[in-house]
Amino acid sequence: MNAKLVIANWKMHGTHATNARLIDALLPSLQGIDGVQVAICPPMPYLAQLSDLLEHTSVAVGAQNISERAQGAFTGEVSGQMLADLGCAYALVGHSERRSLYGETDAQVAMKFEAALNAGLTPVLCLGETIHQRKAGNTNAVIGSQLKAVLDQVGIAKLAKGVIAYEPVWAIGTGETATPEQAQQVHRHIRQVLAARDPALAAGITLLYGGSVKDDNAAQLFAQHDIDGGLIGGASLDATSFVAICQAACA
């Protein structure tokens, strides 16, 4: 059985006060959940706060983004080494909002994946198609292209040191959710693409689903054979909902 993982992506939400209240509400329940790793990705300014709040707990800290550069004159960027220094264990790369709003290319995402590995972080590679691409029947081609860029950059052995999150763009923050069957089809396709290069590594890599996962649909999604957990957006800002989602991952 693959490792179970649930990652909270707080996106651009939070203050010192609201973060502390949310963590206080989450920790008593999260630390009682066995069989699933939980990580929280707050906005960059709060990484140090979350690292302090989660020190000596079972909950890990992750970053929502990472620079593809190790250091230098790149104003406003944050390197993998800086993230590691702040106590991060994970870094999201290629989130659909980074791709669509900030123009990140497949090649840039691949370099960010490698930068995370080089800093000792576990990269979480986000893949996903738009509604137009899905309706045109291009889902597998889009996912394959996004995946190939990283495979070409680092190879299958290093890619397997990361995590992959399938997040259909049309289901992020829209209230729409891929059916469990639709999500499973894409997760199976991802494993098949990887299996063409290394069946053992493909079978063992952790695959997450992200896209309007809530406490009332998480169990059905996580019950699918190739779904090992979730990348959770809005529902991660509600303690009761997020705990229920984490519990569903280890059921």
Score class of each variant (00 low, 15 high):
94 G>V: 02
36 V>T: 02
50 L>Q: 03
234 G>D: 05
19 N>V: 08
87 G>E: 11
18 T>L: 13
82 M>K: 06
175 G>W: 00
161 K>N: 15
98 R>N: 08
178 A>C: 12
177 T>H: 07
45 P>C: 04
230 G>A: 12
113 F>M: 10
112 K>D: 08
233 G>Q: 11
112 K>W: 05
246 C>H: 05
113 F>T: 00
172 I>P: 01
146 Q>D: 09
236 S>M: 09
223 A>C: 12
213 V>A: 10
25 A>I: 05
125 L>Y: 00
200 A>I: 12
161 K>H: 11
54 L>F: 02
16 H>E: 14
12 M>I: 06
87 G>N: 07
217 N>P: 03
221 L>Y: 00
236 S>L: 02
2 N>Q: 12
208 L>N: 09
176 E>R: 14
223 A>F: 04
54 L>G: 02
239 A>R: 10
132 H>R: 15
19 N>F: 06
153 Q>L: 11
123 P>T: 00
26 L>K: 01
172 I>M: 13
186 V>N: 02
116 A>M: 00
21 R>W: 10
199 P>H: 07
31 Q>C: 13
135 K>M: 14
3 A>M: 13
187 H>S: 11
208 L>E: 11
240 T>E: 15
214 K>S: 14
198 D>L: 13
156 I>W: 01
27 L>S: 05
112 K>V: 06
119 A>G: 03
170 W>Y: 11
225 H>W: 08
220 Q>F: 12
22 L>I: 02
137 G>F: 07
248 A>R: 12
180 P>I: 07
82 M>V: 06
159 L>F: 08
207 L>W: 09
142 V>M: 10
48 A>V: 14
172 I>G: 04
3 A>L: 12
188 R>K: 14
42 P>M: 10
5 L>S: 06
170 W>H: 10
36 V>S: 00
197 R>L: 15
78 V>M: 06
118 N>R: 15
124 V>Y: 00
25 A>T: 09
95 H>M: 09
164 I>C: 08
63 A>H: 03
30 L>I: 01
130 T>D: 12
156 I>F: 07
91 A>L: 06
194 L>R: 00
94 G>R: 01
173 G>S: 07
119 A>N: 00
25 A>P: 04
9 N>R: 07
35 G>A: 12
183 A>N: 06
248 A>F: 10
110 A>E: 08
217 N>T: 05
104 E>C: 07
104 E>D: 09
69 R>Q: 15
83 L>T: 01
41 C>V: 04
234 G>Y: 08
46 Y>R: 11
182 Q>H: 12
167 E>Q: 08
64 Q>R: 06
98 R>L: 03
19 N>D: 14
43 P>Y: 10
